[in-house]
């Protein structure tokens, strides 16, 4: 295969991948675009979520057998309360545990007393707009400790999806430059448009702090 044939094949594959990866990602792009707008425009009345939140407090009963370690205790509570989600803010003593468990649009704050076998569960549920907002940011990141990995399988799956979409968008950007370069004679303004885009982006990312 000659060099020119190889280049031709690669640019053809690049174009096809640009089309099909773009089509595959379209719903994800719409979700993250729209939820990004929601996050930046908290004053949009139609998308109000905090005032429409539902709060519920229930008394819970938990039975913790003696001799369990902290992980086993948490697993027992999860199993007895039939809850699932990303666990945060765990504060465990010999007598009790406090923690929050969340998935997009829903947060439970739980206090369980081992001695009495009782506790309190405070639940917070958002409407569809609140769910969209939290989907945008739901990556299991721990603000206090960046090394802590997500502890819920679905958080890891969602975070992987975010990574995949990001890599897909990077590919769409780079492949668009290759596609334009091939037909640059027909679209000469491409040089200017690309330079202006990079100059503006570079100003924000690099030049501002110099």
């Amino acid at each position: 295969m000659t060099y020119q044939t190889l280049i031709k094949k690669l640019t053809y594959s690049n174009r096809r991948l640009h089309i099909h990866i773009g089509l595959f990602l379209v719903l994800f792009i719409w979700l993250f675009s729209f939820s990004g707008l929601l996050l930046n425009h908290g004053n949009w009345k139609f998308a109000s979520f905090w005032d429409e939140r539902k709060e519920k407090t229930t008394e819970i009963v938990v039975s913790i057998p003696a001799g369990l370690d902290s992980i086993q205790i948490m697993k027992t509570i999860f199993s007895q309360l039939k809850i699932a989600g990303e666990v945060n803010n765990v504060k465990m003593t010999t007598d009790s545990v406090d923690f929050s468990v969340a998935y997009p649009g829903h947060v439970s704050n739980i206090h369980a007393d081992f001695k009495t076998g009782t506790g309190i569960q405070k639940e917070l549920s958002y409407n569809v707009w609140g769910k969209l907002r939290t989907l945008h940011t739901f990556n299991g990141a721990n603000r206090g400790n960046a090394d802590v990995e997500p502890n819920w399988l679905l958080t890891r799956v969602w975070r992987f999806s975010m990574d995949a979409i990001a890599v897909g968008l990077i590919f769409l950007s780079v492949s668009s430059w290759i596609m334009w370069y091939k037909i640059r004679q027909n679209y000469p303004w491409g040089y200017l448009v690309l330079i202006v885009g990079f100059a503006l982006a570079g100003w924000f990312v690099i030049l501002l702090k110099l």
Binding site: A166, I170, S173, W180, V193, G197, L200
Partner: peptide, 13 residues
């Protein structure tokens, strides 16, 4: 697409 691509890179990275 060309204009937006550097910003898409910012958001993706």
């Amino acid at each position: 697409g060309l204009f937006v691509s550097p910003f898409v890179l910012i958001f993706s990275v």
